[in-house]
Structure formats: structure tokens, C-alpha cells
Nucleic acid binder design. Sequence first.
DNA 1: TATGAATGAGGGTTCATTCAT
DNA 2: CATGAATGAACCCTCATTCAT
Lengths: 201, 201, 201, 201
Amino acid sequence: MTNGDPQTREQLIDSAIRMFQQNGFQKTRVSDIVASAGVSQGTFYNYFHSKETVFREVCNEFIDQVKDLFIMRTEHIFDGETPEEIRNNVLAVIDDLLTIYGENLAVAELLFREGIGNGGLFKEIYEDILSVFIDLIEEQIIKGVARGFLNAEDPGIAAVFLFGLFERSLFYFLLVRKNTDLNKLKVQMADFILKGLSFKG
Amino acid sequence: MTNGDPQTREQLIDSAIRMFQQNGFQKTRVSDIVASAGVSQGTFYNYFHSKETVFREVCNEFIDQVKDLFIMRTEHIFDGETPEEIRNNVLAVIDDLLTIYGENLAVAELLFREGIGNGGLFKEIYEDILSVFIDLIEEQIIKGVARGFLNAEDPGIAAVFLFGLFERSLFYFLLVRKNTDLNKLKVQMADFILKGLSFKG
Amino acid sequence: MTNGDPQTREQLIDSAIRMFQQNGFQKTRVSDIVASAGVSQGTFYNYFHSKETVFREVCNEFIDQVKDLFIMRTEHIFDGETPEEIRNNVLAVIDDLLTIYGENLAVAELLFREGIGNGGLFKEIYEDILSVFIDLIEEQIIKGVARGFLNAEDPGIAAVFLFGLFERSLFYFLLVRKNTDLNKLKVQMADFILKGLSFKG
Amino acid sequence: MTNGDPQTREQLIDSAIRMFQQNGFQKTRVSDIVASAGVSQGTFYNYFHSKETVFREVCNEFIDQVKDLFIMRTEHIFDGETPEEIRNNVLAVIDDLLTIYGENLAVAELLFREGIGNGGLFKEIYEDILSVFIDLIEEQIIKGVARGFLNAEDPGIAAVFLFGLFERSLFYFLLVRKNTDLNKLKVQMADFILKGLSFKG
DNA sequence: TATGAATGAGGGTTCATTCAT
DNA sequence: CATGAATGAACCCTCATTCAT
């Protein structure tokens, strides 16, 4: 009563990510995935209920990772005393997020490209991400305001700004115009965000 | 050999938008569109080459509208002398864009939700929008910097920030959390952007 | 907005009956049906929702025919005055039923062979037949008792006897041991039934 | 190289009967059976050649039981001298059959529901039962006629009547309309049959 | 003998597109 | 230009059976 061979499972997930990224969810056939994983058609269904299931699994795992990272890294973002410390904290968060996205570029691309459409199949995945992250960001903005570092009339709205700004930038600079200097990007982003939030530094 | 009955054409486009918005591109059947338009299956193909064609047509029309509007309204954005004038110009641009999106919410939703994924079918549509608008925005930032109103180390990067911030906010506030006070949103957005760009006002 | 070409429909139904009879419901592939009907795979689904649907349609049509015939022919079964008349009426009913079964032997075989099992898929079809006919038979027995021709302590139970006796006999003599003299069968059946019901003749 | 653990074998057979009865032969998966028996997929094939094999085994065992019982109980059915004795013998046979069916209701239901259809897979099982029992019944009728108790122009035909009457009644009263008084049923059945066979009593 | 992962053929159904009328 | 019947490729998923351990 195990869960199948973990190695086979991993092979299937890897293939799935690869094929989804290459051809998109709809155009990827289960037969593509299994061929690329070197197993038979039926084996796929010993591990996943459906094509959709792998997709969700892959996405959710990544989302959870990002969420955990985000929570961990933002917890003490405003614990610093000097503006310089805080600016560095913000930079560190951006840096970590960029890194994790970069390390999971394939999955990130899935999320960026497939997470929204598909006849609403994955609507909820994306809208989940939205809510979760916007809430987390909002929390931090509120904290920053409370500690006297930031100014934001409506932290909820500002949180959406930050999310959009961040998410689309990653999409653009990691997947569309790939030759951008990421270090420069980070600094500019921290700068823009902090200015937008009237950071007193 | 004209272009067909314009009324039938319009009916088909309207139905297509409606169905695409309701069920997404993939899940919408040509039979749904024609049923909702009250014509026969074959008629559809007297007006459009394929299901994809209508989708592109619908999207492109809207994109062109937005692009024209954007160009027209940003042309003289920094012609003003006082910061107050310029801030008002920016607000006006945001206002106009919000209005045109609001008036074409159905198509906007298509773009937001379907424009990216779909196995790359419409990848180019979205990436077209990206390039075009980011370029247009960059141009304006450069102008603003040149006129001494703004400060941006890398206008190209800043343009992406503005685009992401704007696009995702619209998506979020027009389609996900729909009960937001749009006037407040506009002001906050202008404020955030201008601060982010070190607007001297 | 018609219902498709009636000729194609008929071809499909005929093929379906033929193939179901030959190979049973489960083993019949839709591809067999369409091949035998000389149309394409897709055409089948312009006429029927599913393989199951044709089966039901075919069965129900036959059942309705039999039911109508039964009702019509039994209505005046006990209107006669002399026992001889009534015996002849009974014989006529049996004769008509045998004829209609014989004329629809293919469908009848479907019902006999496929109507019951199949994981309960068609359970209800068969149990519908049961209820309907047993009720109709019971009615007639009650009438016969009331008119003083028959005797039956529990007409409901006797109705089940008649149904079983009749249905299994048809199955056996029409489909298993096919060389039986049907005229002899009819007479014996009428005789057995009437004696079983203490017919005063 | 024995026949395997008898306990495991029994568990598998019991599970098979249970699942077949619940969901029918076709819809029952081997995985259902083994899950319900608490053994692994492969174990099943250490005991049975195929899914079909268990089905046949289960059915045949029951049929053999019924056949043995029937032969044993009918052997001396007309050995009595008085009509009363014979009527009681007939009643006893019906009683015993009802009992054995009742005690094996699950298997009986299988036979009734699954034994016929299934694309002819089990056609022969059912037609075997038919031949065997009809022959046995015919023998008894012939004996009854010879001893001067019964009258039947064609005992072969009458045997089919009895079989159909009995089998469908059991199906109906044991599985469809389950609330019938079985004692009443037995008496009525014996009565109907004997009258139908011109029993001199 | 028990296990359970792997197999792979098989078939129902969908739907964009075509085309004769 | 309108119709709607016909097309047929495409694909997901099932599950009985095998077999190495």
C-alpha cells in the first residue's frame, strides 16, 4: 500500500513539466508525457488521476514553496532599526524570490502562461495565488506603516500594485526579454517600490 | 463577394465574445457560438476562417483601440508646465484606460485570461501587447525624465513596472475583487507611479 | 433544426440492432455500428448521445409496440359469452404476441439477453417491462375472475406466473430450440394457462 | 503447488460474489475484488485464471448444488399413492428450491441478472441451466403422466412452462418485489402448476 | 505464494471543419 | 450567402493481466 515507485513518479512529473512548458497544457498529450518519461500509458494513471491532476500538483508544490519562502523572509523585514537595514531586507526578499523563480523557471512559466486561462480550469489556482500573496504583502505594508517606515493610504490597493509589478516583471525579464541584468533589476525594483510606498530613507 | 452581412458578422462576434468570456476559448465550441448567434454551423465559416480567427479579430480590435487611445492621450502628457498639470494628465490617462477597459470588460477578460496560455496559441498576441505598450510607456518616461519631471535610471525597466502594476491591477479590481472604489484606485495608482518615478511635485 | 436525415438514422438503428444481436451490447463497438451503416464515426453522435442511447431507443420502441398491442388485444378478452369465445380470445392474444416477437426477433433477443444484466445499466428497462406487463396481466385476471370465468386466489401472483411462463417460453422456443411447432405451442400454452387459472370451460 | 490458501481463496470468492452482485460482472474490476478481499492484485491470479473464471466457478457451484438438490428431491415425487401425498411432494420440492435460492440469494441474483447477457460470454451457462433443468422437469412430468397423476400432451413444452414460471417468479419475488409472503407463493405455485398439468386430485 | 508496479491495447466521445444542396 | 449533415482525426482514460522481486 505504498504510493508507487517514487522514481517513476518523479520521472513523470519532470516529463509533465517539460512537456507542459514546451507545448502548453492543452496541447500536451498524456502520451507525450509518458513517452518522454519512458513508461507506458497506463503507468501514468497509477500515479495521477488525470492530466489535470499532475498540472495542479506541479503548480501547488511550487506555490507552496514560494509562499513558505515569502512568509519566512518577510517576517522580520521591518525589525531593523535603520532605513538601510530595511532596504536591504527588501532587496533580500526580492533576491530570494527571483532565485526561487529562476530555479523553477519551467514551473514558473507554466503558472505565468497556463495558470489563468484554459477555460477557467485553473482560474482558481491563479486566483488563489493572487489572494494569498496580496494578503501577505498587505500585512507587511501595514506593518511597515505602523513602524513608521512607509506610507500607504490603502495598503490593500498598494499590495495589488506590488504584486502586479513584481509578477509581470518576473514574467517579462525571465521569460520574454531574457537578457536583462537581474541585479540591476532587483535594485531598481526595490527602489521603485520603496519610493512608491513613500519609504523614509 | 462582399464581406457578408455585417449584421450577421456582428452577431457572430458578439456571441463569440460572450461564449469565450463565459467558458474560455478552448471550452467554447463553434456550435455554441452559432447557436447563440442564431445561425447555422456553416455560416460561421462564411465569415471567419476558424475559431482562432474570431478570437484574434476580437482581441486585435480591442488592442488597437487601446493603443490608439494610449498614444493619443500620452502625446502631450508632459507638455504641461506645472507638476499639478502633469499629475492631472497622468490621472486622465489612467482614467481613460480604466474607462475603455471597463467598457470592453468582456474582451478585456478574454485578454487577461485567455491571452497568455492556450498552448502558446495566443502567446504572440499577449507578447505583442507587452512590447507595444512597454515601448510606449518607456517613451513617455524618457520624455518625462528629459523634461525634468521624472527620474528613472532605466526607463525600460520602469516601463515594465508600470505595465505590470497597471495591468494586474485592472485585472484584479475589475474582475476579481469587483467592489473597489475605482476613483480611489486611480488616485492611488497615479500617486504610487509618480512617487516610484521620483516625480517632482 | 430538423433531427437529421431519417434515412441515416434508420440505417444506424438497423446496424445497431444487428450488431448488438450479433455480439451483445458490451462487445459491440460504435465503430462496428457505423461501419455497418456505412457512415463515419462522428455521424453516429449526430443522431444519438451515446451507445447506450441507441440501445434504449431500440428497446423502448419495441416495448411500446408490445404494450400497445397487448392492451388493445386484451381489452375485450372477457367480453365473450361462451367459454369457447374466451378461449379463442386468449389464443388470439398469444398468437399476436408470438407474431410481434417473431417479427422483431432481433430486438426481442436483445431484450431477452441484454435487457437484464450489464451491471444494472438496463436493469430498469427490464424491471419496467416486468411491472407494466404484470400489472396489465393482473388486471385481466381480475376481470376474468369477476366475470366468473377464472379463479385465482391472488391475481398478482398468478400474473407473475403467466408472465414468466410466457416470456421464458418465447425465449426458449424462438431463440434456443427453434424447431418447435409454434401452433402447437400456442394451443398448449393457452390450455396450460387456462387450466392453471381454473378456467371454467 | 497446492491449490493455495483455502482461506484466501474463499475470501476472494466471497468478495467476487459481493462485488458482482453489487455492480454486475462488467462493472466489477479485479481491483475491487482484491481490495475487498484484502489481498494484492497479483494474488488474484494465483487463484483464478481470469475474472471470467471466478464468475463461472461461482455460478457452476451453485448450479450444481441446485441440480443435485432437484434430482434428489424429485426422484420419488410420484412414488406416493394418494394425490395428497404427491401434492405435498411437489410443495416440498418448491420449498427446497426456494430455500436454496434464498440461502444463495447473491449468486442467484448473479445468475438471474448476469447469466444471460454480457455479449454472450455466459450465454452457455444459462442455456446449460435451461437444458438441464428442462430435461429434468420433463422427466418428472413424463413419470407423472405415466403414473396417471398428470396429463400433458407435450411434456417437453410443459417443462418449459414450469421452468419459466418458476424461474421468473423467484426472480420477481426474491429480488424485485421482495415483500411477498413466500408461503402463500409456494402454495399458489404448486396449485397453478398442478392444475395446469391436469393433476387429478 | 504474495506483492504491486508496469503494461498497452482498446474504445467511446468530441468538435472544428467541409461541402453538397 | 445559408444550411446542417457528414466527416474523421484526435485523445483521454480504463483495467485485465503479467512478472520481477
